[in-house]
């Protein structure tokens, strides 16, 4: 989570118009999920990987690790689709287990593969967005899309204070460790619970101090801020449109071939 945040600020695509990146990610994701086309998903996986790693400059090893996380989850959950328990063996494989079979069909394997690749393609779209766009830019796009202001203000403050509170938590933990606060499991649990309660108190104090500081800058219950936006480029928009059209052609082509 924190790594994603660090990476997005160094991405070479960071200063690309956030609306374009958002539109690309969401439209591609929708096409992928709705069509469930394997060909289309493969194209998306390749495209987002190239965009994020090659053009955005996110290290390949990081990208692989990040993709491996959802992949593990998806593989585990698709096992249920592949593996069946049945009295009659299915066509792909069948392992007899007493009176029943642990078995699977080719159709099931195909469905599982389709699910894995489309899910991963959808995840890669979201990774493309979050690895190349800082949170504040995404919030600005949401604001333009008329997302309720309350949500945006909450997200903005939560995002900021996530880091403030994490820093406090880590410094408390460090000082506990330097006093042998984790010498055995029991002490470690105890230290952790102390840290959480101190963190809670600090969070309340911080929120009061923040409110005072905002009041002193004439806060009236609405957070008004200016955003630096980077103008959209015609070339990029055309490229996005072409890509989406290409995806649609892939889907139709794939349907016709089958």
């Amino acid at each position: 989570m924190i790594i994603v945040d660090k990476l997005c600020y160094s991405s070479r695509l960071r200063y690309m118009n956030a609306g374009e990146k958002f539109a690309f990610a969401i439209i591609t994701l929708l096409i992928c999920v709705v069509s469930r086309s394997i060909l289309c998903a493969a194209v998306i996986l390749a495209a987002t990987a190239i965009l994020t790693v090659k053009i955005g400059g996110i290290p390949l090893s990081r990208y692989r690790t990040l993709m491996a996380v959802p992949l593990t989850f998806i593989l585990l959950s698709t096992l249920a689709i592949i593996v069946n328990f049945s009295h009659t063996p299915l066509d792909a494989f069948a392992i007899p287990l007493g009176s029943i079979y642990v078995t699977g069909s080719w159709h099931g394997i195909y469905r599982a593969f389709q699910l894995i690749i489309t899910a991963m393609a959808a995840v890669s779209c979201l990774y493309f967005l979050s690895l190349n766009t800082p949170m504040t830019d995404i919030l600005e796009v949401l604001r333009r899309l008329r997302c309720p202001l309350l949500f945006i203000e909450l997200m903005m403050l939560i995002y900021r204070f996530l880091f403030v509170l994490l820093e406090i938590a880590s410094s408390i933990t460090t000082s506990q460790r330097s006093r042998l606060g984790n010498k055995d499991l029991k002490t470690a649990y105890h230290s952790f619970s102390n840290m959480v309660s101190v963190l809670f108190v600090r969070a309340i104090k911080k929120s009061n101090a923040l409110f005072d500081a905002m009041e002193s800058r004439c806060y009236d219950g609405r957070i008004r801020v200016l955003n630096e936006t980077f103008p959209p480029k015609a070339k990029e928009i055309i490229a996005i449109v072409c890509f989406e059209v290409f995806l649609l052609i892939c889907i139709i082509g794939g349907k016709l071939l089958l």
């Binding site: 504040t136 903005m156 995002y159 101090a209 923040l210 500081a213 957070i223 801020v225 955003n227 630096e228």
Partner: peptide, 10 residues
């Protein structure tokens, strides 16, 4: 306690 936004400009 004063900076509430992650973006300097905001």
């Amino acid at each position: 306690n004063q900076l509430f936004s992650a973006s300097v400009f905001q």
